[in-house]
Amino acid sequence: MYEPIRTKSVHSMADDAGFPHRTREEELDIQLAGHLAALLAVTDELRALAPSAELDAAAERLADQVARLRLGAQPPRSSVASAIHEPHLTALHQRAHALAGRALVVAASRADTAAAILAAERMDVHADATRLVGAS
């Protein structure tokens, strides 16, 4: 009743085409490095607006983790910041909190303890900072 399929499936053709495939771990490394690099960019902007030794240390730890995940490639660093005003600081802390949360999810999925601890610490710091900046 039905004519048999005479050609290979598109999916099997793609598998046979010799395209480089990444493992799940490699994909998670790429995602985690991206989230941590984005968090580093926001941290650098916060450092420019409200300098602190704690943010300097966090930025260095983030840069080290990104470099580790990117096999030694150092992440680009930002030194430019916008005008200082409180709502901007609150928004940056909220963005940093969200990015740290994303990094935590990927780090936990990847079973990367060092990155997960760093992401969780950054989430706590930015949640506290959001409350403090928003309350003043």
Rank of each mutant, 00 (worst) to 15 (best):
P4T: 03
A48L: 07
A41Q: 11
A38W: 04
E60D: 11
R61G: 03
A33L: 10
T130Q: 12
V42N: 00
P87F: 06
I30E: 14
D16H: 13
K8H: 14
P76W: 04
A14H: 12
L132E: 13
A17R: 05
G34H: 04
L28E: 12
A38K: 09
D112H: 00
L49E: 09
A73C: 01
A33R: 05
V105Q: 15
L99T: 02
A81H: 06
T43Y: 09
S109Y: 05
A53Y: 00
L118A: 07
A111Y: 11
A83E: 14
Q65C: 06
K8E: 15
L69A: 02
A41V: 05
E60P: 01
R77W: 03
V105Y: 08
R61C: 06
T90W: 03
L39T: 04
A111L: 13
R6M: 13
T43V: 11
I5A: 11
L69I: 11
A58L: 10
S9Y: 02
H88R: 14
R102L: 10
I30G: 03
D44S: 02
S136I: 12
P87L: 06
D128A: 15
A119S: 12
I30N: 04
L49P: 07
T90G: 05
E25K: 08
E60C: 02
R131C: 12
L118G: 03
P20M: 13
S79A: 12
D16T: 13
P76F: 00
G34N: 10
L55G: 06
R102D: 13
A37H: 03
L89R: 00
K8S: 14
T113F: 14
Q74M: 10
A50W: 02
E3F: 08
L46C: 12
M1I: 06
E25H: 04
V66W: 01
